[in-house]
Amino acid sequence: MSALIDNFDLFARAFGVTLWVSLASGILAFVWGLLLAAFRVSPVGPLRTFGAAYVNVVRNTPLTLMFVFLVSAAPSLLGLTVPLGQPMAILALTLYTATFVCEAIRSGINSVGVGQAEAARSVGLTFVQTLSHVVLPQAFRSVLPPMINVYIAHIKNSSVAAGFAVTELVAIANRLSNGNPGDVIGIFAGVGLGYLVITVPLSVTAERLEARVAVAR
């Protein structure tokens, strides 16, 4: 642990990077995921096809491959050169997590009673109004616990960026361990704690909410 305390400024900065990368890509992934979910339930065929194709391809691809793709193939294939480091990490995580956000929202939409949507339609609400005023607010409740789990995985996935030139928590664990071979266990315990500080409150919240949603049914 002493190596970690000596280099506390590095550790704190790395913690900040993990938080920032997770937060920035988390927000973008939510927006993109919500849009994809809307695509997947929309009345317009091509949008549904696009949504389904995107989700199925990206969800079945490892995140590491997404990074490798952006590093190596994207510049010549798409003419898209993303700066290595945080911008690339944020883009890769956004594209990846959005698919899980989309699926969580979609299963939430499916869990809302048929009568709700029927009632909304029968008072003359349009598709967009039905979704935004009636279905989504109710879906939100049952979506929340799985969504929290998606974001826990998302925060941990931000560690993949360590392999692609982002100095976040795992990268700093690696670097400090190489400099202080005697203190490896302490360093890893400290960095692990850094993640748990973020993820355990989330997973406990998810568990509580799950119990509450189940009772409310």
Binding site: V170, A173, S177
Partner: peptide
């Protein structure tokens, strides 16, 4: 369960290699 669900797999792998 709670500790190891909350730690990145990559951190565990690095731990295996380095520690």
């Amino acid at each position: 369960t709670h500790v190891f669900r909350g730690i990145p797999v990559l951190l565990l792998m690095y731990f295996g290699v380095l520690a």
